[in-house]
Design a binder for these strands. Structure first.
Lengths: 242, 242
DNA sequence: CGAGGTCTTGAAGACGATCAACAAACGTGG
DNA sequence: CCACGTTTGTTGATCGTCTTCAAGACCTCG
């Protein structure tokens, strides 16, 4: 099993090669592993934390709570993701992050991140890039919410999630576990739970996927990707000098 | 009138104080001013530019074009914004940026941005923060598209745009110019132009705003902000050490 | 075994889309 | 400066997607 800092190193190596020194720096700044139960807020809306949270294992959702009680999930985080790296510079958080499954996390103090920007510009650029990739995913979700139908939106979400999970060895052979209820999915896709249910039936009826007991199975990747207009360019994967 | 680098300095000073040296660096890296007509693509989808574009004056929209011809605008850019700072690290762009009015722009070479991350960590952090603010706006739009009705969504958009414009002296006294057609607004808010028209009438009928000939007038800021559930926290304005 | 969450189904209703037509505003050239 | 064509704005009627409300089945876990 990977150590906390190795998990982060693997994530950054999706984008560029790391030196031994850089790996050492990561090892020095990532805090000890912690266990967190499912459905716990690990980042609180409106707070000013002194550290950022690295997700080592499990699933988390960033969400905004509206005055009328509605919840919009704006990001899904998986193993290796910094769930609130932006709190380092943004200071006051406009949203919360909750675990959606049992999770393992580690903290990185903001003063350490600051030191990285002072002494490890290449690492800093890679960390910056992870936040840019988050933003690219946001844009893709905006396109989905603004311009795609419910079935296409769901198909796109499944493709994106599968691909992200494969890169951290949490999905393969067109299958992956996803601990989200249909209600969670609705809050993500801007639909009601009832309509998510019917949309799933639609995709099942088209022979595109199966989904039972927290396990998603993609029956026809090519068709699903086409149906969801999925193009992975926006995820920026691939090592190159950054 | 501000010089190109001064315009950028003003933008960054929304977040923290700049030193004279930092201003000098900005002055050295920002290219000469260029004029661009309205409705011109200044960033091309799928390209790998060697520089990022700083918008000095005018309005631009980031947009994604779908296979079926639909267009989703994912960001509105105004004076002082870097419209594609992320291309510095993302390399291949998943979207395009077009002018929506006559604009003045300046280029900054990626090698200069890289040098900033090597030698000017504080400046680099502020540039990073501008991309984080972009992401925060994306999240807010996600909330709007996923969880708000058309009138509330439009109200929120007007509040956000007004506030951003005031900070660069392009709006005041509850009025501002916005060169967007109802079709553009529809592509931004995930609505048809027809429905944008009716939604505008709804807001006018509520006495919240007036909108004629490219000029928006907010008749009741407090009521509009409440109606659109607008809370400016996510824009991160305010100088503090970053 | 019971309780609460989750999934599923049905029926009715609302919000926004679509289609179509016309009016108003704008820019361009004569 | 007016004529004209094109873009933008406006209105009406109809349609479809998704919501809402309600109820029942299933499932998991104490």
């Amino acid at each position: 099993m990977l150590s906390p800092s190795e998990r982060l190193a693997r994530k950054l190596e999706q984008y560029d090669v790391l030196s031994a020194e850089e790996r050492g720096v990561l090892d020095a700044i990532v805090g000890p592993e912690q266990e967190v139960a499912a459905n716990v807020d690990i980042v609180v809306q409106g707070s000013r934390p002194g550290y950022s949270v690295l997700l080592l294992e499990g699933f988390c959702g960033r969400y905004t709570l509206l005055p009328d009680g509605d919840r919009q999930i704006t990001a899904l985080h998986i193993s290796g993701d910094f769930v609130d790296l932006h709190s380092f510079l943004v200071k006051r958080l406009d949203h919360a992050v909750a675990t959606m499954s049992h999770c393992r996390i580690a903290e990185v103090q903001h003063r350490e991140l600051r030191a990285v920007t002072e002494k490890q510009p290449h690492l800093a650029r890679l960390l910056w890039l992870t936040t840019l990739t988050d933003a690219a995913i946001h844009r893709e979700w905006l396109v989905a919410l603004g311009a795609r139908t419910a079935p296409s939106r769901l198909a796109h979400f499944v493709c994106e999630t599968y691909l992200r999970l494969t890169l951290v060895d949490r999905a393969r052979d067109n299958r992956f576990d996803l601990p989200m209820t249909q209600n969670d999915l609705g809050d993500t896709l801007g639909l009601t739970a009832v309509h998510v249910n019917r949309t799933l039936q639609d995709l099942r009826g088209r022979g595109l996927l199966a989904w039972h007991g927290g396990t998603v199975e993609i029956l026809d990747w090519h068709a699903l990707a086409k149906f969801g207009q999925f193009d992975a360019t926006y995820l920026s994967y691939g090592q190159e000098p950054r």
